[in-house]
């Protein structure tokens, strides 16, 4: 914000507003200048900041891993290969521990989720005002740096996972088997309407909880950083340093949970009840 006398409320709102590109009320396309304006753009608008960061991080991830994969050696691995192999091995062990079927998709998907979500979460540790101030220099009014604090990003991931789960459920059990699972559980065929209701709620709870858990955790963490940033500058370190250290745990844990739940849902899709 250019004004020198910004209130706490303005500061917080500013930090929680996405840089949104969409159609203005007057019909022209462009960046929204306030939260309200962004809301008026409706569905066909893009959060340039979070989506951009998420895409960039994903590309960095793919670039690094692909480079390592291309030059991979079966001999003594170098530093980067060692690091990548450690992550791959960790993911592979988790997948093998929870998922006992044959699938070419699940392990790469789990790896993508783990590393990508982890990278998106790590953006939370970048000092809160650093990138937004840098953005202001380039004329960007808003800049939300942490992609996983955007519900669109987390729900996008969760819905993707959910679609894959549904796809494999139907592929494994057939459309009839999948429907039967919804209809004849848990009360047998005489409780069909209740079964259907319960199972559909259960089914829909999966992606929602998956996406909102990640969003909630990171959003809350970001919020605390914003609140700490409101304190006088000479005392901020006393709170932000411990919170950042604690947050390292949250960051890894949330990425891990997202991956594990993906594997579990996939295992449920493959398992027969």
């Amino acid at each position: 914000m250019s004004s020198e006398t910004i209130t706490s409320r303005e500061y917080i709102t500013h930090h929680l507003t996405n840089l949104t590109y969409g159609q203005h009320a007057d019909g022209t396309w462009g960046l929204a200048h306030s939260g309200e304006e962004a809301a008026q753009m409706g569905f066909w608008a893009l959060n340039v900041d979070t989506f951009g960061f998420s895409l960039a991080l994903g590309m960095i991830f793919m670039f690094v891993f692909h480079r390592v994969a291309k030059r991979v050696t079966t001999g003594v691995p170098g530093g980067m290969q060692n690091f990548v192999e450690m992550i791959v091995d960790f993911v592979d062990e988790n997948v093998k521990g929870m998922f006992h079927h044959q699938s070419k998709v699940i392990a790469p998907m789990a790896l993508t989720i783990f590393v990508w979500v982890l990278m998106m979460n790590i953006m939370d540790l970048v000092p809160i005002d650093f990138l937004p101030k840098l953005g202001e220099v380039f004329g960007l009014h808003f800049l939300k740096v942490v992609p996983s604090t955007d519900v669109n990003i987390t729900m996008g991931l969760a819905l993707s996972v959910f679609s894959v789960v549904i796809f494999f459920s139907i592929k494994q059990k057939g459309l009839g088997g999948f429907a039967a699972e919804l209809a004849f559980h848990p009360f047998g065929k005489f409780g069909l309407p209740i079964n259907l209701f319960l199972e559909i709620v259960n089914l829909l709870a999966k992606p929602i909880s998956l996406g909102l858990r990640l969003f909630g955790n990171l959003y809350a963490g970001e919020m605390i950083f914003i609140l700490i940033a409101l304190l006088p500058f000479w005392i901020q370190w006393a709170l932000s340093v411990p919170w950042a250290i604690f947050h390292i745990l949250i960051i890894v844990l949330q990425a891990f949970i997202f991956m594990v739940l993906t594997i579990v849902y996939m295992a449920m899709a493959f398992d027969d009840h």
């Binding site: 949104t20 989506f51 994903g58 994969a69 998907m109 669109n152 990003i153």
Partner: peptide, 25 residues
């Protein structure tokens, strides 16, 4: 706001998973 970002994320996720499955893993 829920907006088209969600679609963008779904698409990029699909591409990344495909890429990972094909060239990395």
């Amino acid at each position: 706001n829920i907006n088209a970002t969600i679609l963008g994320q779904v698409i990029s996720f699909s591409i990344f998973v495909w890429f990972c499955m094909k060239f990395v893993w």
